[in-house]
Amino acid sequence: LQLFIKTLTGKTFTVEMEPSDTIENLKAKIQDKEGIPPDQQRLIFAGKQLEDGRTLSDYNIQKESTLHLVL
Score class of each variant (00 low, 15 high):
Leu1Phe: 12
Phe13Tyr: 07
Arg54Asp: 14
Thr22Ser: 12
Ser65Asn: 09
Asp52Gly: 07
Ile36Phe: 07
Phe4Pro: 02
Asp39Pro: 09
Glu51Met: 05
Leu69Phe: 03
Leu1Asp: 06
Lys6Met: 15
Asn60Cys: 03
Gly35Lys: 14
Ile5Val: 14
Leu1Trp: 11
Gly35Arg: 05
Ser57Leu: 10
Phe4His: 15
Gln40Ala: 13
Gln41Asn: 03
Leu69Val: 11
Leu56His: 01
Gln2Glu: 12
Thr9Leu: 08
Ile30Trp: 00
Val15Met: 05
Val70Pro: 01
Leu69Trp: 02
Glu51Ala: 09
Lys6Phe: 10
Ile36Cys: 03
Leu3Asn: 00
Phe13Gly: 01
Asn60Ser: 13
Asp39Arg: 08
Thr7Cys: 03
Asp58Ser: 13
Thr66Ala: 08
Ser57His: 15
Gln2Tyr: 12
Thr66Pro: 04
Gly10Arg: 01
Leu43Thr: 01
Pro37Ser: 12
Asp58Lys: 03
Lys29Glu: 09
His68Arg: 15
Leu3Gln: 00
Ser65Tyr: 12
Thr14Cys: 04
Glu34Val: 08
Thr22Glu: 03
Leu43Val: 10
Gln40Phe: 08
Glu64Met: 09
Glu51Thr: 04
Leu56Arg: 01
Ile36Gly: 02
Phe13Asn: 01
Asp32Gly: 13
Leu1Thr: 04
Ser65Cys: 03
Leu43Asn: 00
Asp21Phe: 05
Lys27His: 02
His68Trp: 05
Phe13Val: 04
Gln40Asp: 09
Ser65Leu: 05
Lys63Phe: 15
Thr12Ile: 15
Asp21His: 09
Gln62Ser: 05
Leu50Pro: 01
Thr12Tyr: 13
Glu16Ile: 11
Ile30Glu: 00
Phe13Lys: 01
Asn25Arg: 12
Thr66Cys: 04
Gln40Ile: 09
Ile36Asn: 04
Val15Phe: 07
Lys29Asn: 12
Gly47Leu: 04
Lys63Met: 14
Ile5Asn: 00
Thr14Pro: 08
Ala46Met: 07
Ile5Lys: 00
Phe45His: 14
Gln31Ile: 02
Val15Glu: 01
Gln49Asp: 15
Thr9Glu: 15
Glu34Arg: 05
Ile30Asp: 00
Lys48Ser: 08
Glu34Gly: 07
Thr7Trp: 11
Leu1Cys: 03
Pro38Lys: 14
Asn25Cys: 04
Leu8Ala: 15
Glu51Ser: 07
Pro19Tyr: 06
Met17Leu: 10
Arg42Ala: 14
Lys48Glu: 14
Glu18Leu: 08
Gly35Thr: 03
Asp58Met: 05
Gln2Thr: 07
Arg42Gln: 14
Ala28Trp: 13
Gln31Thr: 10
Ala46Trp: 14
Ala46Gly: 08
Leu56Ala: 06
Leu50Gln: 00
Leu69Ala: 02
Pro37Ala: 13
Gly35Asp: 10
Asn25Val: 15
Ile30Pro: 00
Ser57Asn: 09
Asp58Phe: 12
Gln40Leu: 10
Glu34Tyr: 09
Lys6Cys: 03
Leu43Phe: 06
Glu16Ala: 14
Gly35His: 11
Glu24Arg: 15
Ala28His: 05
Val15Pro: 00
Gly47Cys: 03
Pro38Trp: 12
Ile23Ala: 02
Ile23Ser: 02
Ser65Phe: 07
Asn60Gln: 04
Lys63Tyr: 06
Lys63Pro: 13
Leu8Lys: 13
Gln41Lys: 01
Lys48Ile: 14
Gln62Lys: 05
Arg54Met: 08
Leu67Met: 04
Val15Ser: 01
Phe45Arg: 03
Thr12Ser: 14
Ser57Gly: 12
Asn60Glu: 08
Ile44Glu: 15
Arg54Lys: 12
Gly53Leu: 06
Thr9His: 10
Lys33Glu: 10
Lys11Gln: 08
Leu8Ile: 14
Asp52Ile: 15
Leu43Gln: 00
Lys63Trp: 07
His68Gln: 10
Gln41Thr: 06
Leu1Pro: 07
Lys6His: 08
Ala46Asn: 15
Phe45Leu: 07
Leu8Asp: 13
Ser20Tyr: 09
Ile61Arg: 02
Asp39Tyr: 10
Gly35Val: 02
Phe45Asn: 02
Leu26Thr: 03
Leu71Ser: 10
Glu34Met: 14
Ile30Gly: 00
Val70Cys: 04
Gln41Pro: 01
Lys27Asp: 00
Lys6Ser: 14
Thr7Gly: 08
Lys6Leu: 15
Thr14Arg: 12
Ala46Ser: 07
